[in-house]
């Protein structure tokens, strides 16, 4: 396998008139990985993906997709990439099958059509209706099939499960994982935390056109804030807990029960609690959603 990263972005800039959509994005995605690009609407996720396909031209920075410059070798990049746009639009008068065949013809008709049919069957996609008569969910299914149908080396998926029911969401995520198992790199954007948590190995968090952090999903969950609920056997003056570095008392129900927020290691807390009779000690990891919100809250506080 080629050792170049599947995606290498350095200091990518993109402005839409006065709006600074990307303000120096840096990102690297290794081959064969599933990478989640997480951020709220308007953060710059779609803009970054569209730069990778040369649909829009960056104002600065460098970009390599599968080791190629998308501006100079756009046809090659697109031939090896499957793209699912955030909102799929197509010639409404064509049937789904005719539409897929048009797209296949743009790829030189080198498609394994039985494979296309298998993909469609897996997500219950009827090929007969006209595109204009499809629901949002069915349009999304067409998008998924056309992105996967040529077995691309790189999948760029903009909100891949948007509009799908939970069962179909699971099936699409399975299909994406299978594509990865067959060697594809997957780069997908989302603002649905559970989806990223379930699918991605690494995640890039983008806010206001900059990648705030790129990190393994597990690491992110491990190293961030936790919560602990402590119940003492008898009433205790809990102020000593607040003096431990990294500990915040979130809720004090009564003198026997507290809810704590723990930042960093738990060693100091455990040692401090050991001096008191504890009847219950429960910890919980926050969901990625809570971590994500913490990012934004912190940033807003700084501003």
């Amino acid at each position: 396998m080629d050792q170049n990263p599947a995606i290498q972005i350095n200091a990518l800039l993109k402005n839409y008139g006065p709006v600074r959509a990307l303000r120096g994005v840096n990102l690297q995605v290794r081959r064969g990985a599933i990478f989640g690009f997480l951020g709220p609407n308007g953060a710059g996720k779609t803009t970054a993906i569209r730069c990778m396909l040369d649909l829009i031209r960056p104002d600065g920075g460098t970009l390599r997709v599968l080791g190629l410059d998308p501006q100079k070798r756009s046809v090659e990049v697109r031939a090896r990439t499957g793209y699912l746009p955030g909102e799929l639009a197509f010639d409404g008068n064509l049937t789904v099958e005719a539409g897929l065949r048009v797209l296949a013809s743009l790829r030189g008709n080198h498609l394994d059509w039985p494979y296309v049919l298998r993909l469609a069957r897996r997500i219950d996609l009827d090929l007969k209706p006209q595109f204009k008569n499809l629901s949002k969910g069915n349009k999304q299914k067409v998008g998924v099939v056309q992105a996967l149908m040529h077995r691309p080396e790189l999948l760029l998926l903009d909100e891949p499960t948007s509009g799908l029911d939970p069962l179909m969401q699971q099936e699409v995520l399975r299909m994406v994982r299978e594509a990865r198992d067959q060697g594809a790199t997957v780069f997908f954007s989302s603002h649905i935390i559970s989806e990223v948590e379930e699918l991605a190995e690494r995640v890039g968090i983008i806010r206001h056109g900059q990648v705030a952090e790129t990190v393994e999903v597990d690491t992110l969950k491990r190293r961030s804030l936790r919560r602990a609920r402590v119940r003492f056997q008898k009433p205790v003056k809990t102020q000593f807990l607040a003096r431990i570095p990294g500990i915040t008392i979130l809720v004090q129900d009564d003198s026997q029960s507290v809810l704590l927020q723990i930042e960093g290691e738990m060693d100091a807390l455990i040692k401090a609690l050991a001096r008191h009779p504890v009847s219950e000690f429960e910890t919980e990891r926050p969901t990625l959603e809570e971590i994500f919100m913490a990012y934004y809250t912190e940033e807003q506080e700084v501003r």
Binding site: R50, L53, L55, S74, V75, E76, R78, A79, T81, Y83, P85, E87, L88, A89, F90, D91, L103, L106, R107, G108, Q146
Partner: peptide, 14 residues
Amino acid sequence: NGTLDLLLAHPVSR
């Protein structure tokens, strides 16, 4: 109508 985005994401030069 948003179709061009998808078409030009295919391997055909502008």
